[in-house]
Amino acid sequence: MSLLATSGLARSFGGIRAVAGVSLALERGEIRAIIGPNGAGKTTFVSMISGRVQPSAGTLSFDGEDITALKSWERVLRGIVYTFQITSVYRNLTCFDNVALAVQRRLSKDRALWRQPDQSAIADGTRAALRRVGLLSRADELAGELSYGHQRLLEVAMGLALQPKLLILDEPTQGLSGQEIADFCTLVKEIARDATVLLIEHNMDVVMELAHRITVMNNGTLLAEGSPDEIMANADVQRAYLGT
Rank of each mutant, 00 (worst) to 15 (best):
A211H: 00
V207T: 07
L136F: 11
L166E: 08
E190G: 14
T186K: 09
L154P: 15
E171S: 03
Q179V: 05
A211W: 04
L142F: 09
K189I: 12
H212L: 00
L187W: 12
E209S: 13
L199E: 02
I200V: 10
Q163P: 05
V206N: 13
T186R: 15
E141K: 02
E180Q: 01
L162K: 02
E201N: 11
T196A: 01
E209D: 10
L154D: 13
E209H: 15
L146G: 14
H202F: 03
Y148D: 09
R152Q: 11
R152N: 06
L199I: 09
G178M: 07
D205H: 15
I181F: 00
P164M: 10
A157S: 07
G175D: 03
Q174T: 13
I191A: 12
R193W: 11
M204T: 09
P172S: 07
M204A: 06
A139Q: 14
G175Y: 08
A139E: 04
A182M: 08
A143C: 14
L136Q: 12
V197W: 05
R213W: 11
D205R: 14
M208W: 05
G175R: 02
L199T: 05
K189M: 11
Q151S: 13
S177V: 01
L154C: 13
A157G: 07
A195F: 07
E180R: 00
V156Q: 02
L166Y: 02
I181L: 14
L162S: 06
M204R: 12
M204L: 13
P164G: 06
L142G: 01
P164S: 05
E180K: 00
Q163H: 12
D183C: 05
C185F: 13
E141Q: 11
D194M: 13
S177Y: 10
E145A: 09
D205K: 15
D183K: 10
L146D: 10
T173R: 01
S147L: 02
L153Q: 13
A139V: 08
L153S: 15
E155N: 01
A211S: 03
L198R: 01
T173H: 03
E180W: 00
A195L: 12
V206I: 08
K189G: 03
H202S: 14
E171I: 06
S177L: 01
L187R: 10
A143D: 11
V188G: 06
P164N: 14
Y148K: 03
T186N: 14
A157L: 01
